[in-house]
Design a protein around this nucleic acid. Structure first.
Lengths: 343, 343
DNA sequence: CTGAAAGCGCTTACAG
DNA sequence: CTGAAAGCGCTTACAG
């Protein structure tokens, strides 16, 4: 048997530290609070000794009484997209630096987003931030009922009652439409990702709307399933085997786009971009690799993360303003998978 | 101002629920504990009402008294490797299913692994599991001092006092050496990743040792920095520009290998595998994409995750056996980047 | 500026 | 099988 929770040495408590210092535990406690009234020297003495003895206030006990756990709940679901890990870690780093910590919970088929939120709520997290899950808002509703603020990343709530920071996906879709049409393309295709993901929905909407506005309505669509490489291949096969084959494909994200390029070249013997142009979305690291050189829309990830961290902190501290959806524009990055059509 | 922590509706407490039911809070409390002695019907009645009212025992209060928070600390650092996200989410899912939850903390330049562990310790997590960080063991030492069990994933402690589950990286390196030598290669190269990562160290050792055993000592090495695509390119340039250019490259992971292939083809005009063979390690999703078709060593990720979850649970519950390092063999997957040398 | 005391929401011997 | 009471490690009015 290795160490069990029972035979573990008990960490020092504030009582012991107080005894050590010959002070009351009230005084010692105050030393750990920025705004508490306490003599300068007393505080210093306490902090010094605490440090020597390795004492750290127990955040559980503190949270019990202050009703603030300084923990932020992070719910995550589909993370096939390589930029979520980056978001998770960067966001966590920022929050850590401010003395907050994150409890991670993943929603999936067996544990719904709502259940995921429920455990977070039971832990009394100060706030929950949701990373791009589906559009369902049961989780958000549960938070609202509990009075816990919610923040959406890369998605927004349908009710618009919550804060959100996201790339302007609709605008991104429009920009891609303009790019392709300006290049001379007239038969366009859209390869869908997860159908109910707001990223998918908005990118598609922007794209289709703009096409219509410019008088192009020959737009073929694939049935979306997920954002995976396999799904991209399936979508590409659907569109490329049509008699009126599109000359340009807009894919709901980069992974799908890479798969589409592979299928076009290997299965249909098409040259990219000569026979068919392909555009992705996100600008993940892979997109810039010479072997892919994908034209795509870059999300302003660093800015998005910063804003998310700022908002999270404000919300957790109760100093946030009215709920708002912050939409940041993406940037079209033209690489080697786009070009005018043959003819 | 939106909801602040202060104006939030207070969640129901056990006292209120007890009052509701006309019972003592002791009895109500017992209903929530598997092994507590309590009348069957009483328990059912309590659980039913609790469910109706949405009552959930406050885990903070519970943790304060039981000394068991049911939270597992997860420390993560370099996550450029695409399989870490998978590990994080899958592991979290398993733990969730068993009623445990994970607190995520990231170690980096500004927050050392030891500091990261310290915050976990302050939250009294039942266990901390470390995802492939560097070899430093300051964090593990801090845990041991606090009596908190530690589990390493894809790395092991130099002192061998902790549990660990990892791919047999050394064996993997040997297997690659055998494969390449059997193919007829005699001038080999190793492209290093993060120098002090145990994955890097072990893969290299296995590779070099096996080469030496088989009488091949013409092995060139690049200076490693990280496991990134850029680093792979730099390493490849180092090795491929040597006068005695290696005919086969073993890269410490798949990302490096993809970069090496790109550099070989684009910058040196070499054909892969005709002019130079390239082998990676991990078998990340990208490796199997037709556009890369990388020969690599597949880590048994699902098994590794399952074992890690089992061990984590056992450790958290204090039912684990003696510390042991579990090393799982990988599988060589031969795809299109390996072949015998020209000559 | 400091201390004694009450209390946060639970669990668990101890009686009954 | 159930209840009254003590206590987990803190914070924070309230006095002094």
């Amino acid at each position: 048997m290795s160490d069990s929770p029972n035979d573990a040495p008990q960490p020092m408590t504030i009582i012991e530290l107080a005894k050590e210092l010959g002070m009351s535990r009230s005084t010692v406690s105050r030393a750990f609070h920025e705004h508490a009234v306490i003599n300068r020297e007393t505080r210093e003495k306490i902090l010094k000794r605490a440090n020597e003895l390795g004492f750290q206030p127990n955040p559980l006990a503190r949270g019990l009484i202050t009703k603030s756990t300084r923990i932020v709940g992070l719910v995550v679901s589909d993370i096939t997209n390589p930029f979520y890990p980056e978001v998770m870690t960067k966001l966590t780093e920022r929050l850590q630096a401010e003395g907050f910590h994150v409890m991670l919970v993943v929603a999936n088929a067996t544990r719904s987003e709502e259940e995921a939120v429920r455990v977070l709520l039971s832990y009394r997290t100060d706030i929950v931030v949701m990373l791009a899950t589906t559009l369902s808002s049961a989780g958000a509703a549960a938070c609202r009922a509990a009075g816990t603020p919610v923040l959406f990343f890369n998605r927004y709530s349908t009710e618009g009652q919550s804060h959100a920071v996201t790339c302007d996906n609709e605008l991104g879709g429009r920009v891609v439409a303009d790019c392709l049409i300006d290049l001379g393309h007239r038969r366009l295709g859209f390869i869908a990702g997860k159908p109910d993901a707001s990223t998918n929905v908005d990118r598609r909407n922007g794209f289709l709307t703009r096409c219509r506005e410019r008088g192009i309505d020959v737009v073929a669509e694939s049935n979306g399933v997920t954002f995976s490489y396999e799904a991209g291949g399936i979508g590409a096969r659907q569109l490329l085997s049509r008699p009126d084959r599109p000359t340009a494909l807009f894919c709901a994200n980069d992974i799908l786009a890479v798969a589409a390029v592979d299928v076009a070249q290997r299965e249909f013997g098409l040259k990219v971009p000569d026979d068919v142009s392909v555009v992705g979305f996100d600008d993940i690291g892979i997109a810039s690799w010479p072997s892919h050189a994908l034209t795509t829309v870059r999300q302003p990830i660093p800015t998005m993360i910063d804003l998310t961290a700022d908002l999270t902190l404000a919300l957790a501290r109760g100093t946030a303003r009215e709920p708002a959806i912050i939409r940041l524009p993406g940037t079209l990055i033209e690489r080697s998978t786009t070009k005018g059509p043959r003819s």
